[in-house]
């Protein structure tokens, strides 16, 4: 069977599942929005300060929302046995897994971007900075989501694996975070930020190529 066809079949199923389980869809978003709301209130009404920390706060909130979303991604299908069935299909396991991850990433990212303009108001950001932040989120966020997915795959068979998973993957977030904030800082100083974006893009491509195999191996170990 055509692999693209399989890819889209899995994506469609994942989207269908997300819309049937609305709480899973809304939880990471609600978390994201809550952090963004609390921050300006806690820090106080200092536009200059908020402008400076705004992009960083958006990134940290997005990273933690990603962790939250990725953590539950394989749990359900592991417990009901559908991962097992996928592993025994003649369709490559890594293909069905990456389709699942990409589908879940869209489910997380699109609403996140849609509500992110509130930060323009909360943090007194100007449009340019907001735009660069979103750009880095789109490119770097996928890398982070892929790292988290590998972590989730490694801990899928553990009963309380979420803390272990966070410990495993959060160190991997750091390079992405550094280049993303680097790009945002450069933009806020009026410098070119394409170099940092290119590096983020390179990291995304490498992780997109490596993650499917890492995930399939990790889950096979968990199934055994």
């Amino acid at each position: 069977m055509n692999w693209w066809h399989v890819f889209f079949t899995v994506m469609k199923k994942e989207w269908l599942l997300s819309f049937r389980q609305k709480s899973d869809l809304i939880n990471p978003l609600a978390f994201f929005l809550l952090v963004l709301t609390l921050f300006p209130i806690a820090v106080g009404p200092f536009p200059k300060l908020l402008q400076q920390i705004g992009p960083g706060v958006i990134w940290v909130a997005a990273v933690l929302a990603t962790l939250l979303a990725a953590e539950r991604m394989f749990k359900q299908s592991f417990h009901d046995g559908s991962l097992e069935q996928q592993a025994l299909s003649s369709v490559p396991f890594s293909l069905t897994l990456i389709a699942k991850v990409v589908a879940n990433w869209f489910v997380l990212l699109v609403p996140l971007i849609l509500i992110s303009p509130v930060t323009l108001m909360f943090f007194h950001l100007n449009f340019e900075i907001w735009f660069v932040t979103i750009l880095t989120l789109i490119i770097g966020g996928l890398t982070i989501f892929l790292f988290s997915a590998v972590g989730a795959a490694l801990t899928v068979s553990l009963h309380r694996g979420s803390v272990l998973m966070a410990l495993l993957v959060i160190p991997l977030y750091i390079p992405v975070l550094i280049f993303a904030t680097g790009a945002i800082n450069a933009a806020s100083l009026g410098f070119a930020y394409h170099g940092q974006l290119a590096i983020l893009g390179a990291m995304m491509i490498v992780s997109l190529l490596a993650a499917p195999f890492a995930m399939s191996t990790a889950i096979r170990v968990g199934l055994g």
């Binding site: 389980q21 559908s82 369709v91």
Partner: peptide, 28 residues
């Protein structure tokens, strides 16, 4: 050539019977 049904049946609880069968068929 293999059809394995374990004690965890691999039926997604949020999909209907038809969607479950259809999805499995497309993958296998």
């Amino acid at each position: 050539d293999l059809l394995y049904i374990g004690h965890k049946p691999g039926v997604e609880p949020h999909l209907s019977a038809e969607e479950n069968i259809r999805y499995w068929e497309k993958l296998h």
